[in-house]
């Protein structure tokens, strides 16, 4: 069997590319490591010296202000130097290839690349290229690639669930919305099943589900009311507006009627169920404002925990 490209010879985390295939112990170690970092953010001096002198390059081939900002804050709170590159407005626009860009930044003594790319597998390609050219000391963190994975989002979601629910092994979790186009959903499903959640449900119209989704170990529901019954955690997905044009959905209004999370639909879940959303939210499309701002929503804690989880990942990689 070939070695998991994310782990080094000692089985330690070398890159974070996907949650798929990541051992349960490593996921648990990341969540454990994140816990004391939440306290660092509450200090007047929100900085620890773990990555002092390291250069972290945020390589964003696709726009995402929120993800880029949270990675930047995390790296800065670890005392790293952060360089942000929005590549769609720079060299690739002039024709440079992905790996040429990487080689140039590696020649500038980069220690870590945080990569967001519209193509699935781009971070893996970079990691492979670095290994093939004996530059294993440079770490790669996937900040979202195509429809494939968004592992730090999946991990911060797990951190949030553990924070509010303590234990994974007695939970029913529902993931609602555009699973087909969602790298977040894939990462969530892998993480939930690895951590031993006994029942993971996906709730979506047929047009927004990938074929063979059942093989990922989930129960499929097309009726949201039926799918939400008795769940402990509701994980909403963002509905990308561009999907409306692709004839996959009739209209935002109709989508909201059947798959928008409203207070009366949420009432079918357990009374202490939590509501999560990776942001940015489309109020009135996938989630009602009364729910988004309601007492069961933990959407803003997700953002706060996201920084601690990214600090944990970067310190575990960069400290090697």
């Amino acid at each position: 069997m070939t070695r998991n490209p994310q782990l080094n010879r000692n089985g330690e985390l070398q890159h974070l590319l996907t949650i798929d295939g990541l051992p349960r112990e490593i996921i648990a170690a990341i969540l454990d490591t994140a816990e004391p970092f939440t306290e660092v953010a509450e200090r007047e001096m929100k900085k620890v010296p773990l990555l002092r002198g390291k250069s972290v390059f945020n390589l964003f081939f696709e726009n995402s202000t929120r993800t880029r900002t949270t990675f930047e804050i995390a790296a800065k709170r670890l005392s790293a130097d952060v360089i942000n590159l929005n590549i769609n407005t720079s060299s690739t626009a002039k024709g440079e290839t992905l790996l040429d860009t990487v080689d140039n930044l590696a020649a500038m003594q980069a220690d870590m690349f945080v990569v967001r790319h519209a193509s699935s597998g781009a971070p893996y390609l970079i990691a492979q290229h670095l290994a093939a050219t004996d530059r294993d000391h440079i770490h790669v963190v996937n900040a979202g690639d195509g429809r494939h994975a968004h592992p730090t989002q999946g991990l911060l979601d797990m951190y949030t669930i553990r924070h509010f629910k303590k234990d994974f092994t007695n939970l029913t979790v529902a993931i609602v919305g555009d699973v087909l186009h969602s790298r977040v959903a894939r990462s969530q499903i892998h993480a939930l099943t690895t951590l031993g959640v006994p029942e993971v449900r996906v709730i979506a119209p047929k047009t927004l589900l990938p074929t063979g989704v059942e093989r990922m170990g989930v129960r499929v529901f097309h009726d949201m009311r039926e799918g939400l019954r008795g769940v402990d955690v509701v994980m909403m997905l963002r509905l990308q507006n561009e999907r409306m044009n692709g004839a996959l959905l009739p209209s935002p209004q109709e989508y909201f009627k059947y798959y928008g999370l409203t207070p009366d639909k949420l009432d079918l879940a357990k009374p202490d169920a939590i509501v999560m959303h990776p942001g940015p939210m489309n109020r009135g499309v996938e989630i009602d404002s009364a729910v988004a701002d309601g007492r069961q929503a933990v959407i803003l804690p997700q953002v706060t925990f996201g920084i601690a989880v990214r600090m944990a990942v970067m310190s575990m990689l960069g400290g090697m």
Partner: peptide
């Protein structure tokens, strides 16, 4: 830290 990790455990 690089060799020992967070040996102080999860306590903040």
């Amino acid at each position: 830290y690089s060799q020992r990790g967070l040996h102080g455990g999860r306590k903040p």
